[in-house]
């Protein structure tokens, strides 16, 4: 079960973060928060922060999977779980970058 967890954890966390950011975007458009930070609308700041948090978690997971304590010792599970860790990082950047690039609610 531990090996299964190692293999699945990073992409599953990506899925959770991805859905959460999509949900947050929906909520922010339904009820736009007030205020600005450094000239940027609050909604943009919140989305960017959640993007950063998701990325941070993914990097942390990758470090964990590489580590001696949590990472797999067997070669096969190690390769597959590190593959999963990389998928998590890449997918986070690839799918969530629109929070920085596109207009908020059009």
């Amino acid at each position: 079960m531990m090996d299964l967890l190692r293999i699945l954890v990073a992409p599953v966390v990506w899925l959770a973060a991805f859905s959460a950011v999509y949900g947050l975007q929906g909520v922010l458009c339904a009820a736009p928060p007030e205020g600005t930070v450094a000239g940027l609308p609050m909604a943009r700041v919140l989305l960017a922060l959640s993007f950063a948090a998701a990325l941070l978690v993914q990097v942390a997971l990758l470090v964990l999977l590489l580590s001696r304590r949590f990472g797999a010792s067997r070669g096969f599970v190690r390769t597959v779980s590190l593959g999963g860790g990389l998928v998590g990082v890449v997918a986070t950047v690839w799918t969530l970058f629109p929070v920085l690039a596109l207009p908020l609610c059009q």
């Binding site: 992409p11 096969f76 390769t79 597959v80 593959g83 999963g84 997918a91």
Partner: peptide
């Protein structure tokens, strides 16, 4: 073999982020 397994796992989970 192991990259194919990793690809299948990745495909499975990514596919849950496509529904829209």
């Amino acid at each position: 073999y192991r990259y194919v397994v990793a690809a299948a796992v990745a495909l499975a989970i990514l596919s849950f982020g496509l529904w829209v």
